[in-house]
Amino acid sequence: MYLIVGLGNPSKEYEKTRHNVGFDTVDELIERHNIPQSGVKHKAMFGKGMIEGQKVIVAKPLTFMNLSGEAVRAMADYYKIDPETQLIIIYDDIDLDPGQVRIRKKGSAGGHNGIKSIISHLGTQNFYRIKIGVGAKPKGWDLADHVLSRFSTGDRKLVDDAIERAAAAVSVILSEDIEAAMNIYNRKAE
């Protein structure tokens, strides 16, 4: 079984913001694979289903971004998920241009508060990540204002394409392995 968690902030005011591309990707997975909503538990909204013949739980933490680790830890403990081999976290990355996708086996938080929270709660940096580029903050902007802002029309198109590629990357990870997904998807959008 795999636990696939998209990071974001709950409530309508945050929909389609840069910080919510993880939520958007979980929505894409739910739609692609007809995963039924299972309810709210462990501080997350979640669904259970199958992707590429593998049992999955897809989740959107309801704790707000900076406390994402609370929901991830609760779900990982309950479902006996090994973070190093059965957990995939999908989230925004300001160090990547809009439309870029990067897949990693492990790594630091890189300044991302949601990932900092997950590392703190799990006690490890070793979990799979799919990062979706949302672009660097403009000069003079506050970081929070930037990640909670919406995309320009052009960037939204690039990010929507990246969300589709991130969802496809999940299928490759589950049907092959993370190395295969990294080889296919770790390149610039063209």
Rank of each mutant, 00 (worst) to 15 (best):
N186Q: 05
E28D: 13
D177E: 09
I94F: 02
L3I: 03
S152Y: 13
I51T: 06
R187D: 00
P138S: 13
A181T: 02
P10H: 10
K55F: 03
A144T: 11
P61M: 13
D82G: 10
M50K: 14
G49Y: 04
L62H: 06
L122N: 02
D160I: 02
N66G: 09
I119P: 00
E70Y: 07
I103Q: 07
P138Q: 13
I163H: 06
S108M: 05
G111A: 12
A74N: 14
E179A: 09
D93R: 12
W141A: 06
G6H: 01
D155R: 09
D97M: 13
R32D: 00
V101Y: 07
E15F: 05
Y185A: 08
P98G: 02
E70K: 11
D160R: 12
P10Q: 09
D27V: 03
Y185E: 06
D95A: 13
A76Q: 06
T85W: 04
P61R: 11
D161L: 10
Q100C: 13
G123C: 12
D160G: 05
K157S: 13
A59G: 08
Q54V: 10
K80N: 14
E164M: 10
D161F: 10
G123E: 13
D93T: 10
R102H: 13
V5Y: 05
V21C: 00
M45C: 06
G154T: 12
A76F: 04
L29D: 03
V134M: 08
T17H: 05
V58G: 14
S11L: 01
L3T: 02
T17D: 10
K55Q: 15
